[in-house]
Design a protein around this nucleic acid. Structure first.
Lengths: 274, 274
DNA sequence: TCTCTCGTGTGGTCGGACCACAACGTGGTG
DNA sequence: CACCACGTTGTGGTCCGACCACACGAGAGA
């Protein structure tokens, strides 16, 4: 028997209760609304509580959907929708099958979640491109400084390899962009700050389409890419030298140059004049 | 800087690669798997495509779930799970009823989404507190500088009001923290960068529990809170004066002071095995 | 001992039914 | 004509039960 309860306190809102709406009696006392939460949100809260309390850690297995539904006294549908939400946040992951690798696990997959989040909100113009670029500048300047101090040898080797890729002549603009993205993300990773790295990657992913569009409009591509590459090499030199200040300064200049060289990115940031 | 190396323990479950060895006969040559996507993911892609192409903008109404299911030739369940995912990202919002305000709309609600994302991944130790604090320092330094240049009069009034709240004697530590959070987020908002502001708010939300825990362990609370408040007033003065550099410097010092004053935040990040 | 097969448990998908809710049309009533 | 009560309608919310695809693992068979 010995079943560890996953959660007791899911107090379902009984749907068929109308008793508080009496006939026109006094209703103006301080009866604040009760924040009606839907079923799947209650399930999310239950799972989230387990995570926040530390009862569920990365790698742990959740009960089967059917069992969870039975324990929480909700339908399997509600449980599945809750799992979808946490899965969308990169916190859960489901695998079909039986035995070892099957079931729903606590995972650590923030990358795809953050990328989709930022990509969509940038596309909806909720986060203006100008603001995203400002954030990018801040993050990568910080990452460069950290990387100059902390970067390991193999991280520097990775960066060197990426520069060699971009040094190949005749590289397509898309391939250049992808390698360039990897280069910048690798620097962020080398800095050792996981949040910097994830944010940097997500920002680049959210700007991929606009950047590629801007690339196609660059007239003297050979010249621009050569200058970008030259700046990359300088940045890498500063990282090798462990010069944090110089690495940050070069990165700052590099990103500003890139933005100014790409039409449509930094052109119309916000419609004011001050 | 005592920095934990952060092995970044991602126990990612890789998709099992089964090299298809046919039961009999030769193995298939280059028949790479087709990236099996589940139904709800296909629906997500369909909706996301509309958003990315600009066909769906904030405020637009989606077709009813039943109609969408019929058009996409999937079950209503799949559509609903997809809507849940986009809703979790703050991109969609569903309202019951009929007519005007009913249905599923494209929304712009990144706040709750980013807060839950960060809160969960911080709780799972996927993003170490140290890294989050480092990001906070970077963002708020930048926000302060921007706010010094761009802040409107009413934004400064809001900040003044929050400082008056915190100046009240006998304020509970929780109330102080909430007002303090509002103060810092308001500065970020005054800077005019939406992403800065959202990130700042999400970071504060993700650290709320650890901060409150640390607050209870502060011995000389009156002294610490008085110093924090004094720094707040100095920052606000710099903002009023429009001195970006000074505002950034003061904010930097303020946050470092706060972290060093609170036990358990910057001191012992969680040293495990290695 | 090894190999094959089939049972079993997992998430994935589906269709249908019913509920709660909010707007709107309709009709009655002043 | 103006107003109001009420039923209609269409929306998302919830639940159920069934079946599928999949992968492990125990047991039968060689």
């Amino acid at each position: 028997m010995q079943v560890v309860p996953l959660c007791y306190n899911v107090t379902m809102v009984e749907n068929a209760h109308h008793d508080e709406v009496g006939p026109q009696g006094r209703t103006s006392t301080s009866w604040g609304p009760v924040a009606r939460r839907s079923t799947h949100e209650l399930v999310i809260d239950a799972i989230e509580e387990q995570i926040m309390s530390g009862a569920l850690a990365v790698g742990d297995l959740l009960p089967p959907e059917r069992e969870l539904a039975a324990r929480l006294q909700v339908s399997r549908t509600g449980v599945r929708e809750a799992i979808r939400v946490l899965e969308a946040h990169g916190v859960l992951r489901s695998e079909v099958g039986s035995g070892r690798g099957a079931g729903t696990f606590v995972a650590a997959l923030p990358t795809a979640a953050l990328e989709r989040f930022l990509r969509l909100h940038v596309a909806l113009a909720n986060f203006p491109v100008h603001d995203v670029l400002e954030t990018r500048l801040l993050l990568e300047r910080g990452s460069a400084a950290l990387a100059a101090e902390r970067a390991e040898a193999d991280a520097l080797d990775t960066l060197t390899g990426l520069l060699e890729q971009m040094d190949q002549p005749g590289l397509s603009r898309e391939a250049f962009n992808d390698a360039d993205t990897e280069f910048h993300v690798a620097i962020a990773r080398a800095g050792g700050n996981a949040l910097f790295a994830e944010m940097t990657g997500a920002i680049r992913a959210s700007l991929r389409a606009p950047i590629l569009e801007a690339f196609t409009q660059v007239e003297d591509w050979e010249s621009v890419s050569a200058q970008l590459q030259s700046q990359h090499h300088e940045i890498l030199s500063a990282l090798r030298a462990g010069d944090a200040e110089e690495a940050a300064r070069l990165t700052d200049a590099h990103i500003r140059f890139a933005v100014e060289s790409l039409p449509g990115l930094g052109a119309a940031p916000r419609a004011d004049g001050d």
